[in-house]
């Protein structure tokens, strides 16, 4: 078990000694049990920090923002930023380090292990509790969650309320850290790509019907892109708004700026956007499930990214997020890569 007091003590020490600029963690929000990200600057404020299975967010996204902020400051504070990471978040951090987007010296990693549990899926929980509000959630040793509601305690099997990705997690402990809290134990998962199985057994036409129905819903709010720690490009190919046409814009400039996808949320444009996002995340997506969580229309985006993760494993024996020195999937090759599809 991660001892919350230990976490607070470590955070307190780091802030008091001035090792870190500030610490990004979780604190209790105003909407029931759901936490919000906390940015702790003063040592006294560490009391606000929490860590439990409701801490679903991937906080590494804020490191991307931090880098931008630092770049615009005249006299930046060179001290590292402390960040609390779970297993999946730590893998996101590995990818950011692998791509040299952030430096190892700029971040102080407080790893917390999910141990045998994981994080909750709010939607699953709301469904299981049938409208009741949870007041407290604890994980017990026999793979159950004890949920306190206004009606008293109920015990729910972990499988029912854990996020889908946690059931398929490859390592629910941080793979990179400065301080580790909790033990490096792995939750048993026999099917790393279990959620794909049902889907892959469908026929081609059924798959098309499924994806057309799902992606037609997309309103192109780009929440998936905003929340993704890997979507850090300054300018996205899906955007045409970054290109302002003024009276001074020459015809040549207009001609050189290609519109790859229109902003209108219609099938063909949505497909271009989501397919290209999936390809850009191939070998980079660490399955933190944030895109799917934030999607206001519940599009199962994880299924797209998970599929490419599976193909990377099967075709190229590539596993993402464990080694910051490994070359990335699409910028490396092996002589024996499959080419049976090539004429």
């Amino acid at each position: 078990m991660v001892n919350l007091e230990d976490l607070k003590n470590e955070a307190h020490k780091l802030l008091k000694e001035g090792t870190v600029k500030y610490i990004i963690g979780y604190e209790r929000g105003t909407n029931g049990l759901l936490p919000i990200p906390a940015f702790i600057k003063n040592p006294e404020d560490v009391e606000r920090l929490i860590w439990d299975p409701t801490c679903v967010f991937n906080l590494t996204r804020f490191l991307v923002d931090e880098k931008r902020r630092k770049a615009s400051e005249k006299e930046p504070d060179e001290r590292p930023v402390g960040v609390i990471v779970k297993g999946c978040d730590s893998r996101a951090l590995v990818v950011l380090l692998q791509e040299k987007f952030i430096n190892r010296d700029d971040v102080y990693i407080l790893g917390v292990s999910c141990e045998e549990a994981g994080v909750l899926d709010e939607k699953k929980l709301a469904k299981t509790l049938k409208g009741k509000k949870a007041k407290n959630i604890e994980f017990t040793k026999n793979d159950n969650f004890v949920v306190m509601t206004e009606d008293g305690k109920t015990e729910i099997s972990a499988k029912e309320i854990l996020a889908e990705r946690c059931l398929e997690c490859k390592a629910n402990f941080p793979v990179i850290y400065d301080i580790l809290l909790g033990e490096k134990v792995k939750r048993k998962s026999d099917k790393p790509f279990g959620s794909l199985e049902k889907f892959e057994s469908l026929s081609k036409e059924e798959r098309w019907t499924f994806w057309k129905e799902q992606l037609d819903k997309c309103i192109r709010c780009y929440a998936c892109r905003s929340v993704c720690p890997m979507c850090y490009c300054d300018e996205c190919v899906a955007d045409t708004i970054n290109f302002a046409v003024t009276a001074d814009t020459t015809a040549e400039e207009k001609a050189q700026k290609i519109k790859w996808a229109e902003k209108s949320p219609v099938t063909s444009e949505n497909f271009v956007y989501h397919l290209v996002r999936a390809i850009h995340l191939a070998g980079r997506c660490i399955d933190c499930g944030e895109c799917e969580r934030v999607c206001p229309l519940d599009i199962p985006l994880r299924l797209l990214n998970k599929k490419l993760e599976k193909e990377a494993k099967e075709l190229f024996d590539y596993e993402v997020g464990f080694d910051p020195d490994q070359p990335s999937l699409v910028s490396s090759f092996k002589d024996e890569d499959p080419e049976d599809f090539i004429r």
Partner: peptide, 12 residues
């Protein structure tokens, strides 16, 4: 190879 798998996956 990845694009081919992805297009197949979405049903093209």
């Amino acid at each position: 190879a990845l694009v081919k798998k992805l297009l197949d996956y979405i049903g093209l």
